[in-house]
Simulated assay, not measured.
Amino acid sequence: MTHSFQNKIAVVTGASSGIGLGIAQELAALGATVIITGRDKNKLESALSTLGPDASQFQVDVSSLSELDDFYQQILSRFGRIDILIANAGMGEFEPLGQITPEKFDLQFTTNVRGITFTVQKALPLMKPGSSIVITGSTASINPGQGLSIYGGTKAALRAMVRSWILDIKGAGVRINILSPGPVDTQSLHDFLPDPVDAILQSLRDRSPIGRIGQTDEIAKAVVFLASDYASYINGAEIFADGGASQI
């Protein structure tokens, strides 16, 4: 079986690099008209060049409600609807208890929880029955590890919220699921980890039953499955893509 997203309008937030860009590339390769967002104009333009002639990019900070409103108004004017929403924009900070700052606490919850909430809520009027929302979570929702209590808390909050959201929109015909990756080999992961980075990466490989960390295209394929009609009876689920590490 081959997924096809011909004539589908897909929005991927936080898609200027890493996992988000990988998801956008997979959707574009399968025929979707892809719209990506991000905060860095130069990175967005570079990402757009990999997505083909039908893709578009918008500079959007998902923590800004006014920017989200402007973005969705432009989507309505240009495309008329959203068939697939990948709410991927997010961030994290390494902050052990005793070193947590109010500023970084607020930044993580504002981006990861508030940003996702209003990215989803403001998109719903543009989504018709059969549409799909996939939120990028993290295995930190159940196993945050040392120094990741706040980041893990934001991802756990999303899991709880999705359980309620599918009841709130019951009958709308729009599915909402979470795809939670484990460690993925991206520049963001390398930048995120504290020193010694190489030793921590090796410990992550050792912990995985597969013996390695993930690749961007593996996460993208899992997200695309959840967004597709092949997952039409999957709703409100958190699916872990981490080589089995969360299962042991």
Rank of each mutant, 00 (worst) to 15 (best):
Q99M: 10
L76T: 14
A15V: 01
R114K: 15
G92F: 07
R78P: 04
T111N: 03
E67H: 03
K41Q: 15
F105T: 00
D69P: 08
G20Y: 02
I82P: 04
G22A: 14
N88C: 05
E95S: 10
T50S: 15
L30P: 09
K43N: 12
I116R: 12
D70F: 05
Q73I: 04
F5M: 03
N7K: 08
S49D: 10
E45W: 04
D69Q: 15
L21S: 03
A28Y: 00
T119C: 07
N88D: 05
G22S: 05
G80S: 07
L48R: 10
E93W: 11
F118M: 10
Q121L: 15
S64R: 07
P102G: 08
T33A: 13
P96C: 06
I19M: 13
E45R: 10
Q73W: 02
S17D: 13
A89K: 01
Q99F: 13
K41H: 15
L65V: 09
S16M: 05
I36N: 01
I9A: 11
Q99W: 11
K104V: 03
K43M: 06
A32E: 01
K8W: 01
G92L: 09
V113N: 08
S4R: 12
T50I: 03
Q73S: 14
L76F: 09
P53N: 11
I35W: 06
L107D: 14
L124Y: 00
D54Q: 15
L48D: 02
D70Y: 08
T110R: 15
Q108C: 03
S49K: 15
I84H: 11
V34I: 02
Q25A: 14
T50A: 14
F105M: 06
S4P: 07
